[in-house]
Design a protein around this nucleic acid. Structure first.
Lengths: 208, 208
DNA sequence: TAGATTGTTAATCGATTAACAATC
DNA sequence: TAGATTGTTAATCGATTAACAATC
């Protein structure tokens, strides 16, 4: 039925739709969205159809209705509390990342083993890693951003999962495997850069 | 022939192979690598075969040879200079990201329009954005990490491309389209988190 | 109505996997 | 040799697209 990519595109559709709404648009056609995302109109319609997002054969889709239903699908009807484990450069940057604000995602706390990074009075407190277990239970945390060094990434993921976390966005420099009871999404900046450089150099050689 | 995913996996194979080498392994089987990456042995062999990475029908592949040839394919024979445009939270974190060191990627400079972020004496200098054009030309920069706010991402990408940049890793909160003469790889943390949360919640409902 | 767009099916495209001959 | 692993082909699986009937 719906594929992995569809969900990623749903986030992208939603982003565009919110933009359109802000500009005063009330209706939109598959053709428009396709252009904005650089995909085919058929794929837009198929994605929508897979999630029961229906339009009108004459006047396309209603912007408000799409946004509302997508918010439902993407669990944006309530705010999701997210913790950041590892508050070094990347971890800290994501704690302070303001593109999450107003998008149904709230970073509620950070955790780090280094005492110099602890800060219980900031907008977003940074606790000692020893408080992780109690915090997860107490606040019923289901989602974590993992930004620890390579050496502790695996153990830390295991710990989070054992304590009930079901979704991990892993930006540690080592990819981790998913489990039956937890989704892990890996972002590896080195690999992404290598990939970019590879395809860029292919571009060069193609144009020669 | 070789697909987009193959290149990403090449980075992953390489990472594992370097680990194996450090542990003293000299040979490796498709089966081992498949296990480490959670893919099928057939895919490992196909990926290798696509790039002319050959093994031995009895004793598998030579670790050193694989690493050497992968370094060639991934352009790791020489150090790639990379600039960071936008030195806020994420940009700065990537400038200081030490997983790039020793991996053929060197962040050579940062650029930002905010004077308070300028720093010409640090390990990696942060210049005013006005110096971008001269720097790109002078140092023959082909690769950039784009970490500016949404409002300037599109314009800044256009500028970089017009000045000769052919590969952009875009971590700005707005996805950008690629062009004929430049590869753009988008990392959108909001979308990645939404995706993680979605699939995590599917996991929950599946287990009920 | 005529025109335009959706919703859906079948066709296509691309990536992964199964299977097995080749062979070390 | 016998056993094990590669390299490769054909089959399968999954995602995208083309096409078009339905219909607003």
């Amino acid at each position: 039925m719906s594929c992995k990519n569809t969900i990623m595109r749903l986030s992208e559709y939603r982003r565009i739709l919110c933009k359109l709404k802000a500009l005063g648009f009330t209706r939109v056609f598959s053709d428009h969205l396709a252009g904005a995302l650089d995909i085919s109109p058929a794929l837009v319609r198929k994605d929508f159809s897979d999630f029961g997002l229906t339009g009108n054969r004459k006047s396309g889709y209603t912007v408000d209705e799409l946004i509302e239903k997508m918010n439902m699908i993407l669990r944006k009807d309530k705010v999701e509390p997210v913790i950041v484990v590892g508050c070094g450069g990347i971890g800290r940057a994501l704690m302070e990342y303001n593109a999450f604000a107003g998008e149904g995602i709230r970073i509620v706390a950070g955790f780090d083993s280094r005492p110099e990074l602890h800060d219980l009075k900031g907008t977003i407190p940074v606790h000692d890693i020893s408080r992780l277990e109690v915090y997860i239970k107490g606040h019923n945390i289901k989602t974590a951003i993992l930004a620890v060094p390579e050496s502790s990434a695996g153990d830390m993921a295991d710990f989070l999962i054992s304590r009930g976390v079901t979704g991990i966005l892993n930006v540690a420099p080592i990819p981790l495997k998913g489990y039956d009871n937890c989704v892990i999404r890996n972002i590896n900046f080195l690999h992404e850069l290598e990939n970019t450089i590879y395809f860029a150099s292919m571009l060069d050689s193609k144009q020669k």
